[in-house]
Simulated assay, not measured.
Amino acid sequence: MYRVLLPVDTDDDRARAQATYVTELPEASEAVEAIVLFVFQGEGEELPDELQRFNSASRISSVRTATETLEANGVPYSVVEDSRDTVDDILAVADEHDVDSIVLGGRKRSPVGKAIFGSVTQSVILETDRPVVVTGSRDE
């Protein structure tokens, strides 16, 4: 089984593009397993204990968009959530699940800016020995 990590942020279009890329891999529904990661960044830290159970990645629109796209195309997936530093979390989850590649969703940039990745994307690319794909969003 080929394991792919999809660290999604809160943008639905990027999450859809990441998931669509995975569904277009050869034999995706039979040979690919996707791990959708959402990193909470301070959200919910001040929630009362009785509301913490509602602080779930499955409630995030972009996570639902990615998982719905994967499910509609028969690609098995799991959802992982955490609240560490984004780059450290992506790399740690990639190691924990021994993924074969990481699929990131890049932000729209100017023609010159396309040569420069965002800080998270750049850090992941530089700090991992795994293949990294940057998809952007489907409308780019």
Rank of each mutant, 00 (worst) to 15 (best):
L5T: 07
T10W: 13
T10S: 15
T10Y: 13
D12C: 15
D13T: 15
R14P: 12
R16C: 14
R16E: 13
A17N: 12
T20W: 15
Y21H: 14
P26H: 06
S29K: 14
E30F: 05
E33D: 05
A34F: 00
G42W: 04
E43S: 07
E46D: 13
L51W: 13
F54G: 10
N55D: 02
R59V: 14
E68W: 03
L70Y: 06
E71A: 13
A72H: 06
A72W: 04
G74I: 01
P76I: 06
S78R: 10
V79G: 03
V80H: 00
D82Q: 08
D82E: 05
V87W: 02
D89T: 11
L91A: 01
A94Y: 00
H97D: 07
D100I: 03
S101E: 10
L104D: 02
G106N: 08
G106V: 08
K114Q: 06
K114M: 04
I116T: 01
F117D: 00
G118S: 02
V120C: 00
Q122W: 01
Q122H: 08
I125G: 01
I125C: 03
L126C: 04
D129A: 04
R130G: 01
V132Q: 04
V134A: 07
T135M: 09
S137G: 11
R138W: 07
D139T: 15
